[in-house]
């Protein structure tokens, strides 16, 4: 009997996190409630009209010259080759270029913003104490720098690329800039946050040594932080480039002549065979990007 009492007492005193408990409960409720909210009715999804529509749609995914015909590999190949020659290759190239331009810009943005958002660097006395303790004004102003840097990064990161591109398009007109900038801004937010975390976790000794030699802040950044951050930064760079490729295929929908553009164009013309083929081309580019990214990251890990 006493053992049971003891166990009950231990159970009552068990260490637990109320926050964790409530959060899991809230998430479970949210997930279940979302399905019973009445917004996601599935009953009309399989109505006769929709099913007929679906059947027609699936039939139209087959390349046009082959619809209603026996399958002929030669015809299919020529159709695909013409499609690629007309739009596919150029659009694929543009998609790739969009992602590259965006990630390079994003890297610049992240490298500029990250030191400002890193508490170890953006402090009144980075890495070494100064001749006298910093006054309250300097202390608060550096706090403001860190806070501002972080706020900016969070803001960048919380804006979906698509929304940014949509807004920028209206302002800058139909060049590739809106898409490139939208991708660059969002990703510099993410890369910047990750880089700031790397900077904060760096071993401070090399920077302290530089500081001891009389280096100024920009010099510490260029000769201390950047070289030390470089290998891990590259890992994140390629990891984000992977997602940039994915997003670039889609952002063309807003009017830049990349894959996304031709996909919505084909859909508007009800050429579902073309739409489907171009989606597959997009998937191929993404898989290719993934492979390149995995390969480079492995190389960086080996030699970085």
């Amino acid at each position: 009997m006493s053992r049971q009492v003891e166990i009950r007492e231990l159970y009552r005193q068990r260490p637990r996190s109320r926050f964790l408990r409530w959060s899991s409960a809230a998430l479970a409720v949210l997930a279940i409630a979302s399905w019973f909210s009445g917004e996601l009715g599935t009953d009309d999804l399989f109505s006769a009209r929709r099913l007929a529509n679906l059947e027609r749609f699936v039939g139209e995914l087959v390349p046009y010259p082959l619809q209603g015909e026996a399958f002929d590999a030669g015809v299919a190949f020529r159709w695909a080759r013409d499609l690629m020659a007309e739009k596919g290759w150029a659009a694929a190239g543009k998609t790739l270029a969009l992602s590259v331009a965006a990630i390079v810009l994003a890297a610049f943005g992240a490298l500029v913003l990250a030191p400002a958002a890193a508490r170890t660097f953006a402090s009144p006395e980075p890495y070494l104490p100064g001749p006298r303790p910093p006054g309250p004004l300097r202390r608060t102003s550096w706090k403001a720098v860190v806070w501002g840097g972080r706020a900016l990064l969070i803001l960048f990161r919380s804006m979906p690329e698509y929304v940014l591109a949509f807004l920028l398009l209206a302002m800058l007109g139909p060049t590739a800039w809106p898409v490139v900038l939208a991708l660059a801004i969002h990703n510099s937010g993410i890369l910047g946050k990750l880089t700031a975390e790397i900077v904060e976790n760096l071993d401070p000794k090399p920077m302290a040594a530089l500081r001891g030699l009389g280096a100024r802040r920009p010099q510490i950044v260029v000769f201390g932080l950047y070289p030390l951050v470089f290998p891990r930064f590259l890992l994140f760079f390629f990891y984000r480039w992977e997602t940039c490729v994915r997003e670039a295929t889609v952002l063309g929908m807003l009017g830049v002549v990349s894959l996304g553009y031709w996909i919505v164009d084909a859909r508007a013309r009800n050429h579902y065979d073309e739409m489907f083929a171009l989606i597959l081309v997009g998937a191929a580019i993404v898989v290719l990007g993934d492979l390149v990214s995995i390969l480079t990251r492995e190389l960086v890990r080996r030699f970085g």
């Binding site: 997003e247 996304g260 859909r267 997009g282 998937a283 993404v286």
Partner: peptide, 12 residues
Amino acid sequence: MRSVHELLWAVL
């Protein structure tokens, strides 16, 4: 599944 973007799935 990953290689096709959610917006493209939506379009499909």
